[in-house]
């Protein structure tokens, strides 16, 4: 009797793990498939029977092929450089503006804030044509600058930081003024260190968006030399070596891994950051 009831009490737990295992498998399947294929030789992939684990391990060959025939590391370096540059410029531009909107009194403040809110509404893809024309006129299409310039301002970043800055008590700023800090030092020594959660959330939002972005690099860049990872893997697919699935999957692993590792290393930060910036 008691044994029976203990089993019936376990049923919901078993059901929970069962369903989550299924949905989890759905989420993970492409990753498992990708890794599996990246370790297989071409004939193994096309073999009539299928095994998850390669019958003949050719991971080394596949990954070497990916690294040799396409500048995978170069793509990654481009991605890091472009994302870092975008985020840095966004911070330099947005932080003073957010500080002024949150803590200073000036004429036109409400207008500017309304403009920021409208700015959040505009989807960036809708500005692709004018951005393209602008970069074309400047003659900087197909350069690193063309990947960075359109993203120098983030209306959403201003909004997010302004909301957070407002939660910092005025008394703290007044204490800083009495202690002799100038306005720049107040931003650098007081506002920024006290806003690390907001900065981190904004950073994650910005980096994830631009690391994974395909739409804009596809428009602005034709050259493998300055491709970001998302575009680079497409160029590699159209490449001769990329026609073989093993190296192509190896390339995909290389492209996808860095961000996933960063996510696994700081899960809480990432999930909270993405959730808190979802308002976008």
């Amino acid at each position: 009797m008691s044994k029976l009831s203990s089993i019936s009490r376990k049923v919901p737990q078993i059901l929970r793990h069962g369903i989550l295992a299924c949905t989890g498998l759905f989420a993970l399947l492409p990753f498992i498939w990708m890794v599996s294929l990246s370790l297989k030789p071409q004939e193994d992939i096309f073999a009539a029977d299928f095994h998850l684990w390669p019958s003949q391990f050719s991971g080394v060959e596949n990954y070497t092929a990916a690294f040799v025939s396409a500048p995978m590391l170069h793509f990654l370096a481009n991605g890091i450089f472009v994302c870092a540059a975008i985020f840095l410029v966004q911070l330099i531009v947005c932080v003073p503006c957010a500080y002024a909107l949150a803590k200073l009194r000036f004429c036109g403040k409400d207008t500017l804030f309304a403009a920021v809110l409208v700015g959040i509404l505009i989807p960036p893809q809708a500005l692709a044509i004018p951005h393209f024309i602008m970069l074309y006129l400047f003659g900087i299409l197909n350069t690193y600058a063309s990947l960075i310039v359109p993203w120098m301002i983030s209306a959403f970043g201003i909004f997010l930081l302004r909301q957070f800055f407002r939660s910092i008590p005025d008394e703290t700023l007044q204490a800083a003024r009495l202690d002799g800090l100038g306005e720049f030092e107040i931003i650098w020594r007081i506002m920024l260190p006290m806003s690390t959660p907001a900065i981190a959330a904004f950073g994650i939002f910005s980096v994830v968006a631009h690391w994974n972005d395909l739409f804009w690099p596809l428009i602005a860049v034709r050259d493998q030399e300055i491709s970001t990872p998302a575009l680079g893997i497409l160029l590699f697919r159209d490449d001769e070596t990329g026609q073989s699935l093993g190296p192509l999957m190896a390339g995909s692993v290389i492209i996808v891994t860095p961000l996933l590792l960063a996510f696994l290393a700081a899960q809480r930060r990432f999930i909270d950051g993405m959730a808190s910036t979802a308002a976008k």
């Binding site: 492409p30 990708m34 990872p229 998302a230 893997i233 497409l234 996808v256 996933l260 993405m274």
Partner: peptide
């Protein structure tokens, strides 16, 4: 379950 959100769609689309 959050992994797909973080992954680069162009690469995963190829997969």
């Amino acid at each position: 379950h959050f992994l797909p959100v973080m992954s680069t769609m162009s690469a995963m689309a190829i997969v």
